[in-house]
Amino acid sequence: MTGHAEKLPEELKLVTAAHVKYIQSLDTKEDEYDYWLTEHLRLNGVYWGLNALHLLGHPDALPRDKTIEFVLSCQHPSGGFSAAPGHDAHMLPTLYAIQILVMLDALDVLEQRGAGKVQVGQFVADLQNRATGTFAGDEFGEEDTRFLYAALNALSLLGLLSLVDVDKAVEHVVSCVNFDGGYGVSPGAESHAGQVFTCVAALSIAGRLDLVDADKLGRWLSERQIAGGGLNGRPEKKEDVCYSWWVLSSLAMIGRTHWIDREQLIGFILRCQDSELGGIADRPGDMVDVWHTVFGVSGLSLLNYPGLEPVDPVYCMPKASIDRVMGR
């Protein structure tokens, strides 16, 4: 073990070039056991990496054609996508596939070479529980507000929200709210920052942010920042870079990012970088991964860190991509 944390330079800077190199290197580690153990996350990883690259201002750092080929190789006749060829289709990789194609301005390939947009939308829509409004991740029925968000996100990018009962979905989100203003994974579950993000973003897509008690929620969210500048996901838990996204994007959606300390959060995220080899970790000195890398970079983008492309707080994608696909 080396003391990377102690070796950080006095003046912290985002090591953009190293991050780009790190993300590019991810698909070259076929001689490492972990590369194969994480195959079930491959498509997810492409979205995380590609999104980070867009925000870092290097949208072309991954080969476009090869990326599209890979996405299409994960599609099933049902319209859904799996995380890698041969794996089962699931809500999450289906969302990631759409997000990747939107970032690459390549949604058309769904019509030209895939199962068609409507088929993809139908796969997502069929996972709605019409009685409660919430969504399952796959045919085996696990329900979670994560999947509800993923569904509304995916369908709105495809322009197919009409395939589902949005009002019922909104009702379900509202039933997940707690006295502290936060949201849980299902009605009755404890507030959790990740779940707050999915619920507030879902309400935002549905055009129902008026249902959020912004002061109450903003208070709970702002208390997630702890000594050292990082954010945690629940009371009395440790800080973690991924919450830089979930807490901060939620604050952004309710117009309250100024309720936490910007400089301190920037400092925390930058201290989590591997400044030599690139990538961002959950906490300073830990192993980096692409997941924390994208959420660290997205967090910095929301904080208007210089040199980064603006991120959309609802979709966790470059704002320019969202503007384009929504015709804004």
Partner: peptide, 26 residues
């Protein structure tokens, strides 16, 4: 790992024997 939590950062240099072992495992 796609997402690692609380794992200390280390410089990983594999010996030829370790590489071979990884190859077998893979």
């Amino acid at each position: 790992m796609a997402s690692s939590h609380g794992v200390a950062r280390t410089i990983r240099i594999r010996t030829p024997a370790q590489r071979e072992a990884d190859k077998q495992k893979i």
